[in-house]
Design a protein around this nucleic acid. Sequence first.
DNA 1: CGTTGTTTTGAGTTTTCTCAACATGTGTGG
DNA 2: CCACACATGTTGAGAAAACTCAAAACAACG
Lengths: 224, 224
Amino acid sequence: MCSAQVQSPFYDQSAIWPGASDFKLAKNANVVRFKAGETLYVEGESAPYCYQVVSGVVKEYNTLEDGRRQVADFYGVGDLFGISELEDQLHTAEAITDCAVRCYSRDPFLKAVASCPKLSQQLLDTLMARLHSSRERMIMLGRMSAIQRVAAFLIRLSREQKATSNIRFIMSRQDIADHLGLTIETVCRALTEMKKRGVIIFESARLFSIQDTASLEEITHNSN
Amino acid sequence: MCSAQVQSPFYDQSAIWPGASDFKLAKNANVVRFKAGETLYVEGESAPYCYQVVSGVVKEYNTLEDGRRQVADFYGVGDLFGISELEDQLHTAEAITDCAVRCYSRDPFLKAVASCPKLSQQLLDTLMARLHSSRERMIMLGRMSAIQRVAAFLIRLSREQKATSNIRFIMSRQDIADHLGLTIETVCRALTEMKKRGVIIFESARLFSIQDTASLEEITHNSN
DNA sequence: CGTTGTTTTGAGTTTTCTCAACATGTGTGG
DNA sequence: CCACACATGTTGAGAAAACTCAAAACAACG
């Protein structure tokens, strides 16, 4: 396995893409700031840019004709996004928190990557890691119950924030639901159920702690 | 967008990875044959090989502790697989039809790719295309109804086989169900429903034709 | 021509969704 | 600092979708 890298470590400020700052095309890249809730882009057709998070958290989602949404992923510091887009669906990126992103023009970016073995190696590793995690997500969406999905998501948050207490939901319940392929109500009920079982406790709606890591992990494995 | 390439064109004999045959490591790669139903590999831990389909069709799936399966994808002639694997789940590849696959030792493969810009470009394109299609699959699993998923799958088969009549299911209903995150019965009922509506007709259980392409496409878009 | 495996259909149950009400925050202006 | 408004989150009851279990139909194969 190639050197895997954790995806979206929201609170890890260390550069995931250490090469990023000494990109040949770093000069082409301007850093843009967005306020929480602002849309970075909406795209139906071509995607002329790709992006890297400098600070804050961004969500990327697809909207179906009838308004249903699927949040593809959340991106944190260091994460690249906008690399492989869909043409047929409405495709949007939105700032969850205030954030700064480095924008690369797509073609020069890809050209620079192609001409530098080190960069293309990094990009390969990144893509493989992402493919890997999207595999995990397919298992989640295809074969896990509501409570299993939510439990798995809590574990992800815990890993990313490297904490078992005072873990923050940076995203809304709606975002979580749209990411997990559930409704907002079902996400709530799953959280309440885990609270009832004493697996987690809430400091507030957006802040929780894991009481019983083993049970939480067990929920993701056992079907009841 | 980078030159996208269709994934898994089961019946397209043209090389998808044109560089494949003049791989520097082609000498390291031996072609192995499997009978339908045989397991190419089962892996929990490290994945020392990656593979390319020479002929036939292969399915790749993950098994959860309790036996539920998620078929990650079906691979046809030219497709690479085994590149980005999961460590935590039981991960298996199995021949659906009789087939031949070229096996590459993982490390030399990646090294050769790294040392050849053309190859790494090809691999990058492949991975991006795959990421792209896995995005589509997440929308399917997360936000589409049973009949929508099945309809989308039929369209995929039609595209891959470049036909609207006498389209073959090379895989079993169970495989389809495990790919779409449904049960075998639900897949059957969805197919029957489309047959009733006159959207498709069956030549046999594994052979069908599309009667009304527009309606089929409409099913994937409208929620009823 | 029975045996075995796959696909289809049926009936009842479970899970998740929908719609509606209620609760809890959060922020702003008085 | 309080009061109100607006957004976000939670709970409940009934409906819909998909699942489970069981049986029947259909194919493939020796």
